[in-house]
Write a protein that binds this DNA or RNA. Structure first.
Length: 459
RNA sequence: GCGAAAUUGGUGAAGUGGUUAACACGCCGGAUUGUGGCUCCGGUAUGCAUGAGUUCGAUCCUCAUAUUUCGCCCCA
C-alpha cells in the first residue's frame, strides 16, 4: 500500500523523452504490418537489407549531409564517448549507408549496382509537432554505382508503389532537377544575383538565406505569393544540355511506369549532397497538418567522393514511417491485421494445468497460435478472456476426459463442441482451421488496390 | 530556437475555493457449487501532471517545471 503511494503519488514519474513514442498494441501491429509490406516490396525490387549503426562519427554528417543544412548545424544529438570521440546519433540514413559502402568496398563486388534498403530510427533535436518527432523511423533505399536515369525512375516508383499497395490514394509526387554540379553552381550564383536587389522586399528568414542557402528562398512560405519569388529563375532554366536531356529521360521513364508526377521547380531539398533528380511525395489528405511530406530523395553523384570513396553515382529516397501511418489513419484505411488466436486452452485444477501446459507447447510447435490461462481465473473468466482474444477454438480440459485421453474442442463461432482424441487433435485442428483460412484469403495478404494500374488524369 | 493551447481513475470524460469529485466503458466478484459473451446486484482500495506560492482551507487562483497538441522555422 505504501509502495503504491510512493511510486505513483509521491515521486516524479519518469516519462519518455520529448518527441519520442512508445508504439505497442494496435499501433504496434500497424507498424509491424507496414514494415512487412515494405520488406516484401523491397524483396520484389531486389534490394538488399542493410543495418548500420545508429550513431556515427560526427564528422560523417558534417562532410556528408553538409554544413548548410539545419539538420546538421543545429538539430543533431551529439555526444562525446568515454574515449573522447565525437559521435552523433544519425539524423538521416544516407550518410551511414554510403560510409558503409565505401568502408566495405562494395564497389568491388561482382554484382553491380549495389541496391540497399534500410529501415530504422533517426534522431533530430527539433520541436515536436504532428508528424515530427525527435526519434523518427525512416525506411529508404540507396542505389550505388549506376547513373542510369532509369534508376531514378525506379527509386521514385518504389515508395509510390508501397504507398499505393497499402491503400494510400491522396498523394502527389513532385519532381525537379538541380542539374549536375556545374549547372547547380551556375544556378546558385544566378539566384543570388537575382534576389540581391530585392533583398529588402523579402522576409527576414529569406534575407539570411540569401548567401547561405539561396535555393531555400524558393519555398519560403511567408513570401510564397511574392511576385519576386514567382518570377525567379528556376533550376530548369540553368540546366546544361546533358542535364536537361537526362531529366527528360527520367520523366519519360516515370511515364512508362505509370507514376503520376508534377515537375515542380521549387523542390530543392535541404541536404547539400543532392544533384540532378530530386523529388518529394506529399500527402494531400484533409487535415494532415503542415508536416505533409511523406518521403523524398534524389541523386547524389558526388557524395561517395566527398567521403573519400571512389567517385560513385548514387540515388535514393527516405520515407517517414510515422508520417506514412498517420496518412493511412487520415485516409481511414483499414489494414488487414490479423491478431486472432487459433486455440485457447482452458483448465481449472493443477492436474489439468499440467496437461494444458504441455498441450500449449505441443500445438505451438505445430504451427498454431495458442493462448492459455495465466491468472487462475475460473472457467467463466477464461471464456471471457478467450472471447477477448477472438480465439477460434476452445480446448476444455477435464480430469475425467484426460483419463480417457480426450479433450473437448469447441468452435467458438458455431458453439459446436465435440470430444476429440488427443492423438487426433492436431489433425482435427489443422483441418478445421484450414477451412477458416479459405474464407479469409480474399481479405488478407498483399494485393494491389484496383486503382494501381489505371491512373486518372486530374492534374 | 520562437509563439499558442492543453494535462482529472485502467480508459473516455463532467465538475467545484470548503464534509463521500458525477456519469459511462472496462475490469473483478456474485446471482449461475466446471460452459462465458445478455440481464441484474455489488466492488474498483488517501485519484485532479510535478513543485512552490496566495489562502483559515487549493483539483480549482498565481508562478515555475515536465509532457502533449497546434503553428513558425526546418524536414521524412
Amino acid at each position: 500500500m505504501c509502495g503504491a503511494t510512493f511510486l505513483f503519488g509521491g515521486m516524479n514519474m519518469i516519462t519518455k523523452p520529448k518527441g519520442c513514442h512508445d508504439i505497442y498494441g494496435q499501433e504496434g501491429r500497424k507498424w509491424k504490418y507496414v514494415e512487412e509490406v515494405i520488406d516484401m516490396v523491397m524483396k520484389k525490387y531486389h534490394y538488399d537489407y542493410i543495418r548500420t549503426p545508429i550513431f556515427e562519427a560526427t564528422e560523417l554528417f558534417h562532410r556528408g549531409v553538409g554544413e548548410s543544412s539545419d539538420i546538421v548545424t543545429k538539430e543533431t544529438y551529439d555526444f562525446v564517448d568515454r574515449g573522447d570521440r565525437k559521435m552523433t546519433l544519425r539524423p538521416e540514413g544516407t550518410a551511414g549507408v554510403v560510409r558503409s559502402y565505401i568502408e566495405n568496398k562494395m564497389y568491388g563486388e561482382a554484382s553491380q549496382p549495389i541496391k540497399l534498403y534500410y529501415n530504422g530510427t533517426m534522431y533530430r533535436y527539433e520541436r515536436p509537432q504532428s508528424g515530427r518527432d525527435r526519434e523518427l523511423t525512416q525506411f529508404g533505399v540507396e542505389v550505388l554505382g549506376s547513373e542510369d536515369p532509369m534508376v531514378d525512375a525506379e527509386v521514385i516508383s518504389l515508395p509510390v508503389n508501397i504507398y499505393k499497395m497499402l491503400g494510400l490514394k491522396q498523394i502527389k509526387v513532385n519532381i525537379n532537377s538541380l542539374g549536375d554540379m556545374e549547372s547547380r553552381k551556375r544556378y546558385r550564383e544566378a539566384l543570388i544575383e537575382y534576389f540581391r536587389p530585392h533583398i529588402d522586399e523579402l522576409c527576414e528568414d529569406c534575407r539570411s538565406r540569401l548567401e547561405k542557402n539561396p535555393l531555400r528562398i524558393l519555398d519560403c512560405k511567408v513570401d510564397c505569393d511574392n511576385e519576386i519569388i514567382k518570377n525567379a529563375p528556376t533550376t530548369l532554366d540553368y540546366l546544361n544540355e546533358a542535364s536537361k536531356e537526362r531529366f527528360d529521360k527520367v520523366i519519360s521513364y516515370l511515364g512508362a511506369l505509370g507514376i503520376e508526377h508534377e515537375v515542380n521547380p521549387k523542390i530543392v531539398r535541404g541536404l547539400d549532397y543532392y544533384c540532378h533528380t530530386v523529388f518529394e511525395i506529399e500527402a494531400k489528405v484533409e487535415g494532415f497538418g503542415s508536416q505533409n511530406v511523406l518521403g523524398g530523395g534524389g541523386r547524389y553523384d558526388g557524395l561517395a567522393e566527398q567521403l573519400d570513396g571512389p567517385k560513385t553515382p548514387g540515388m535514393g529516397f527516405a520515407s517517414g514511417l510515422g508520417r506514412l501511418i498517420l496518412a493511412l489513419d487520415k485516409e481511414e484505411i483499414k489494414l488487414p491485421i490479423k491478431e486472432d488466436v487459433d486455440v485457447f486452452i482452458m483448465y481449472v485444477n493443477e492436474d489439468e494445468k499440467l496437461n494444458a501446459l504441455y498441450l500449449t507447447q505441443e500445438l505451438r510447435m505445430n504451427g498454431f497460435t495458442v493462448e492459455t490461462e495465466y491468472l487462475g481465473r475460473g472457467l467463466k473468466g477464461q471464456f471471457k478472456q478467450a472471447d477477448r482474444l477472438q480465439s477460434k477454438y476452445l480446448l476444455l480440459l477435464n480430469s475425467d476426459d484426460l483419463k480417457e485421453n480426450v479433450v473437448t474442442v469447441k468452435n467458438n463461432k458455431t458453439k459446436e463442441e465435440e470430444k476429440i482424441d488427443l492423438d487426433y487433435l492436431i489433425y482435427y485442428l489443422d483441418e478445421h482451421l484450414e477451412e477458416e483460412e479459405h474464407l479469409h484469403l480474399g481479405h488478407d495478404g498483399y494485393e494491389y488496390h484496383e486503382d494501381m494500374d489505371d491512373e486518372e488524369d486530374d492534374e
